[in-house]
Deep mutational scan, measured.
Amino acid sequence: EKTLKIVADSEEEAEALAKELAEKYNLEVTIERNPEEEGKYVITIKIKP
């Protein structure tokens, strides 16, 4: 299993990107607040072998 993390500037941007990735590529995608940067969100994508 591989994990890729993407940082987005807004929750709306994160949700839109996560939804597109999940639907288009059938990936497991989660969104959470970035504890290191206020106002940023981390999109985590898990790629199963």
Rank of each mutant, 00 (worst) to 15 (best):
K48F: 12
E36S: 11
A14T: 01
E37C: 13
V42C: 05
A14Q: 00
E38H: 12
L17R: 03
L4G: 06
I43L: 07
T44R: 02
E28Y: 06
K2R: 05
K5G: 05
K19F: 06
I31K: 01
I45R: 00
G39A: 03
Y41L: 03
T44C: 06
L17N: 01
V29L: 04
S10N: 07
A22G: 11
V7T: 10
E32A: 06
E12C: 06
K46N: 11
I43H: 00
A14E: 00
E36W: 05
A22M: 14
K2D: 15
L21M: 13
D9M: 04
K19W: 07
N34H: 15
E12N: 06
E36C: 14
G39K: 03
D9A: 05
E38T: 09
E15A: 11
I47Q: 04
P49W: 13
E36V: 07
S10Y: 02
A22Q: 14
P35E: 11
K46G: 04
L27V: 12
K46H: 13
E36R: 08
D9S: 07
T44Q: 05
L21N: 00
T30W: 09
K46V: 14
I6S: 01
T3S: 04
K5N: 14
P49Q: 11
I47P: 04
V29S: 08
I31P: 00
E20P: 02
K19L: 08
E37M: 10
E32F: 04
D9G: 05
V7M: 08
N26A: 09
N26G: 13
G39H: 06
V7I: 12
E36G: 09
Y41N: 01
K2Q: 15
D9F: 04
A18G: 06
T44S: 04
Y25I: 03
A14W: 01
G39W: 07
E37V: 11
L17M: 11
V42S: 02
A14L: 02
E12Y: 10
E23H: 08
I31L: 03
G39F: 07
V29Q: 00
I47W: 06
R33M: 10
T30P: 01
K5M: 15
A8K: 13
I6N: 01
L21E: 00
R33H: 07
E13K: 07
E37I: 14
I47E: 04
G39V: 02
T3N: 04
A18L: 13
Y25T: 06
E28T: 13
I43V: 14
E11N: 05
A14I: 02
N26F: 11
I6V: 07
E38R: 09
S10G: 03
K2L: 15
G39I: 03
A22H: 13
E37Y: 13
K48G: 12
L4D: 08
D9C: 03
I43T: 00
E11A: 13
E32C: 07
L27T: 15
T44P: 00
T30D: 06
V29D: 00
A8V: 15
D9Y: 09
I31Q: 01
E23C: 09
D9Q: 06
I31M: 05
Y25R: 02
E12A: 08
E38C: 11
E20M: 14
E20S: 13
E37F: 10
E20A: 12
V42R: 02
E28K: 09
L4C: 15
G39C: 09
E13W: 08
K19A: 11
G39P: 05
K19N: 08
D9P: 03
K40D: 01
A18P: 00
I47S: 02
K2A: 15
K24S: 07
S10D: 03
P49E: 08
K5I: 15
E37T: 10
R33V: 08
L21T: 02
A8Y: 02
N26R: 07
T3F: 15
V29M: 04
I31V: 09
K19G: 04
L4R: 06
K40T: 14
K2Y: 13
K19V: 07
I45S: 02
E13R: 06
E20K: 15
G39M: 05
E28M: 07
K5F: 15
Y41H: 02
E20F: 14
E36M: 11
T30Q: 04
E36H: 09
Y41P: 01
